[in-house]
Amino acid sequence: MDENALDPGIGTPHVTTAQLDWMLDSDPAIRWQVLRDLTDASAAEVAAERARVATQGWGARLLAARDPDGQWMGGACFPGRGEPPQAGHQPWTSTLPAMMELYDFGLDPTTDTAREMTALVASNCRWEYNDEPFFTGEVEPCINGRTVTLGAYFGADVDDLVARLLTDRLDDGGWNCGTEDGSTVSSFASTINVLEGLLEYERATGGSEELRAARRGGEQYLLDRSLFRRRSTGSVAVEAWLEFSFPTRWQYDVLRALEYFRVADVRDPRLGEAIELVRRKRQDDGTWLLENTHPGAVHVELEQGDGRPSRWNTLRATRVLSWWDTPG
């Protein structure tokens, strides 16, 4: 078969045999998601590949980087329970970003490894801001949203933190990490972090009407701005949001937002411009590039640098387009 031909055994018409082989020639964290989302692989095949996340490659290396008490680098947001760096870039080596990477890798939350990890973090990790236990959260919605994501996915109790996020929502429908300092207008970044957390919580628990209403309000905040435009002028709010990163950390970009709407299965014509941006960024060889790595120390390098083809972004963009182009 021509390596650039569409394979009838592939689960989506948006990927060729060559692209699929390239994505599968990678770490288990990517391979199992490619098998699940882009092929007709059986559930048993997907599960077997997913199980390797804990024992091979990036996932195993990240788990091995833990401290004896189960934290990463002795801190929640910052290594050694320190303060944000005065100069330079935030390190991504402490507990919150490390656990978010394992979430992105799809570490199976039902495994003994994941359960032990979650229990140790719950017992031993405390926030720099208020010295509260990790899954209690702190003050910033962008941090609390990711904490809810982790708690809901890995099985920790984050009910009170969800309740706090529901009360933290601003009048325009979204959230802002600066509300403690008087901000009254939502931000894209804070809003996407909270939306992802609320969606994960809803999937885990069934949620409530109040939670669903809050999610719809946050979604409308982004949709009213076509995911990247200022509502007041229609201009692009931040040019960097048009560049795709991975891991996304706390930052916002269009592909991250589209992944949320894909998982939530919210099909709205106001997503159309963002979808076309993703299509235009597809390279001639069918890949998408890594464009905007967020600098800072890491435990594991996942890609070969900006401007190079990215397996992560190719997987994410392909499944967004496959979802959008498949009748609901």
Rank of each mutant, 00 (worst) to 15 (best):
R50M: 09
A119T: 09
R256T: 01
R280K: 11
D69R: 07
L302E: 09
D104N: 14
S310V: 06
V46E: 11
P109D: 04
R249F: 05
V238M: 12
A297S: 13
D306G: 06
E128T: 07
Q283N: 14
R52F: 09
L38E: 05
W241N: 07
D284N: 13
L277M: 11
L102V: 01
F105L: 14
W175L: 01
D157R: 14
G197T: 04
D112N: 13
A54K: 10
E301W: 02
S42C: 07
F261L: 00
R164S: 13
E202C: 13
V194K: 09
G9R: 14
T113L: 09
T167K: 15
S310F: 02
G305L: 02
R267A: 12
Q56M: 12
D157L: 11
T248F: 15
G59E: 07
G286I: 00
V185Y: 11
Q283A: 14
E301L: 10
L20H: 08
V300F: 05
E276C: 03
V53G: 13
D253Q: 02
D306C: 09
Q220F: 00
E301N: 05
D171I: 10
K281Q: 15
N176Y: 07
L199C: 07
A60L: 01
E200R: 14
R225M: 02
L290S: 15
D168Q: 15
E259I: 06
E219H: 12
G59Q: 11
G82Q: 11
C177N: 08
N4K: 10
M73I: 00
G206W: 12
C125D: 08
L211I: 02
C125F: 03
V300H: 06
F134Y: 14
L24W: 05
T191Q: 12
G217K: 09
L150T: 04
F134D: 03
A18N: 11
L20S: 05
R169A: 12
G296F: 02
Q86I: 07
G217R: 10
V300A: 01
E276A: 14
L96Y: 08
Q86P: 04
F244T: 00
L161V: 02
E128P: 08
W72I: 03
V46C: 08
E45S: 11
E196F: 08
T147D: 05
L211V: 02
R270D: 10
L165S: 06
R280Y: 04
V162T: 10
A297L: 15
R249Q: 15
S94R: 11
A163R: 14
L211E: 09
D21P: 00
E291H: 09
L170M: 13
G296C: 07
R61F: 05
A213P: 00
M99H: 11
D268I: 03
E239R: 14
E239T: 08
D160I: 01
F244Q: 04
V34R: 07
A87G: 07
F188I: 01
Q19W: 00
A156P: 05
P247H: 09
G272F: 01
D40I: 03
T111H: 08
R164Q: 13
R229P: 00
